[in-house]
């Protein structure tokens, strides 16, 4: 298979999971860094595509790569984020609302997810995307029991956050 065919196959597979990089960027990056993160995720997915084993589920591979890049990105920017908030007034920091005109309920959900730590954000994202406990456990590398326990807690937290 030549490079063009590989790229075409990659694009077709990615099209089946459209929206995931967009959502991931909204959860893990500040508005001004969103496109940088999205590009980094896409670039890494493309670079790692050669190591994808077709015997395994594409979505598991996709989420592993995407979450690993996003979490590393978020960790890298976490300290400077804190500094930015300290150095500027809160009104100066652009929010997703400034960035685009979204449904308020969608924005509230994003905000609630961003309130979790990086690993729990990934867990909630996979859950909202409709993945089973087993699939989530496979992507994250933890037990199904652990997934279940954590999700119960996170769901309650989220319900509470969105009701207040």
């Amino acid at each position: 298979m030549d490079q063009d065919q590989v790229r075409e196959e990659f694009e077709e597979r990615m099209a089946e999971h459209r929206g995931i990089v967009f959502k991931l960027a909204g959860i893990y990056a500040r508005p001004e860094d969103r496109e940088d993160l999205a590009q980094e995720v896409y670039l890494q997915l493309w670079r790692s595509y050669g190591s994808y084993d077709p015997q395994r589920r594409f979505s598991t591979w996709l989420y592993r790569v995407a979450l690993n890049v996003a979490i590393s990105f978020a960790r890298r920017t976490a300290v400077s984020d804190k500094r930015t908030v300290e150095l500027s007034t809160v009104d100066d920091v652009p929010t997703m609302k400034h960035f685009e005109d979204r449904d308020e309920r969608v924005e509230a959900i994003y905000e609630a997810i961003r309130g979790f730590d990086e690993l729990n954000r990934g867990l909630m994202l996979l859950h909202l995307e409709g993945y089973t406990y087993r699939e989530i456990a496979d992507v994250l590398g933890i037990s199904e029991t652990n997934v279940s326990t954590k999700l119960n807690r996170l769901r309650n937290q989220m319900r509470q956050d969105l009701t207040e």
Partner: peptide, 20 residues
């Protein structure tokens, strides 16, 4: 309800040509 709202997020709806 949260899941239902989440599933309706379409990145292609807001941006010309689509984000991805």
């Amino acid at each position: 309800e949260i899941k239902s709202i989440w599933s309706q997020i379409d990145p292609h709806a807001k941006e010309k040509g689509g984000f991805e």
